[in-house]
């Protein structure tokens, strides 16, 4: 394709690789620094010796975090919301995307339905009416306050319905000739052939619930904070009210920055674990779903 390989091209290629390498370094260095802090002992951190490698390696910050009841309690709360929330999101997306993927002559009032969904993207009631609603439904301090308000993801519906539209009509026709109804066709034909899109939606939903913190802060009591909300109170607001005297004593032997770093790392690990799958699916998902010219 490129006929000439001139000096200019070679200089550009070198320059390009350098720029991209520096960009990658810019993305990585903050994380490497935090990891290094989390494995370094108090004196080294306080002396400002830790840069991009642990100094006086220690596991004490992690020991402290892993033995901390409040951390695991918050971790459990997050697992609960991820399990319930992501399941709910994905089931709803599937059963909503299927009918909406049908053309108007197969689903009466399709235009009305679409507008009901679409309008929620144009306008919203805002924070206060939402908060009052959750309160008046007596959902405060329950996991339902964290999973119900965001249960219907309109973006995800569009992503999946575009995928459903690509399913060959012959497959569907064959199923109907065999006597299958819409439910069986959906679960036995559409869902299996759309697994990449469903995987994308599932992973995004899991990561979304894992990362959510604001709803936890406004809807939950401190003792039921999910992990990110708990981290927000510890790492960002410096709120140490939840700590027992014994914990405070142990904390004195450690550096605050190391402990914060260790907690953040532990909270990142699950995202890191699903990241390879995320990366595998989201590129194709985004292409198909988000923008169709």
């Amino acid at each position: 394709m490129h006929v000439h390989s001139t000096t200019g091209t070679r200089i550009f290629n070198l320059f390009n690789l350098i720029v991209l390498t520096l960009t990658c370094a810019g993305c990585l260095i903050p994380f490497i620094h935090i990891v290094s802090l989390s494995f370094s002992d108090k004196a080294a951190v306080m002396g400002g010796l830790v840069k991009l490698w642990p100094v006086h390696f220690t596991l004490d910050p992690y020991r402290y975090v892993l033995e901390r009841g409040a951390f695991w309690h918050a971790f459990g709360m997050t697992l609960e919301r991820v399990a319930i929330g992501a399941t709910l999101n994905v089931v709803l997306v599937i059963i909503l995307a299927y009918p909406l993927s049908k053309a108007g002559d197969k689903l009466r009032m399709r235009t009305l339905y679409v507008w009901i969904f679409f309008f929620t993207m144009l306008f919203n009631g805002g924070l206060i009416p939402n908060y009052i609603l959750v309160k008046e439904l007596h959902l405060l301090d329950t996991v339902w306050a964290l999973v119900l308000p965001g249960a219907v993801g309109v973006f995800n519906i569009v992503l999946l319905l575009n995928f459903f539209r690509e399913v060959p009509a012959e497959l569907e026709d064959a199923a109907f000739i065999d006597g299958a109804g819409h439910w069986r066709t959906l679960w036995q034909i559409y869902v299996p052939v759309s697994l990449p899109a469903i995987a994308t939606v599932t992973l995004f939903s899991i990561v979304g619930h894992w990362n959510a913190w604001f709803d936890g802060m406004i809807y939950m009591k401190v003792s039921h904070y999910p992990l990110q909300t708990y981290l927000q109170s510890i790492v960002i607001k410096f709120d140490f009210n939840t700590m027992s005297p014994e914990e405070a004593k142990r904390l004195a032997k450690l550096n605050d920055r190391s402990i914060k770093s260790a907690q953040m790392i532990v909270a990142v690990i699950p995202v890191l674990l699903v990241y390879p799958y995320l990366q595998k699916y989201f590129v194709s998902g985004i292409r198909l779903g988000s923008v169709k010219g």
Binding site: G126, I132, L133, G150
Partner: peptide, 11 residues
């Protein structure tokens, strides 16, 4: 959606 999007809109 009615409960968690349209009720807050009216709210």
């Amino acid at each position: 959606l009615l409960i968690f999007a349209y009720v807050p809109m009216m709210g």
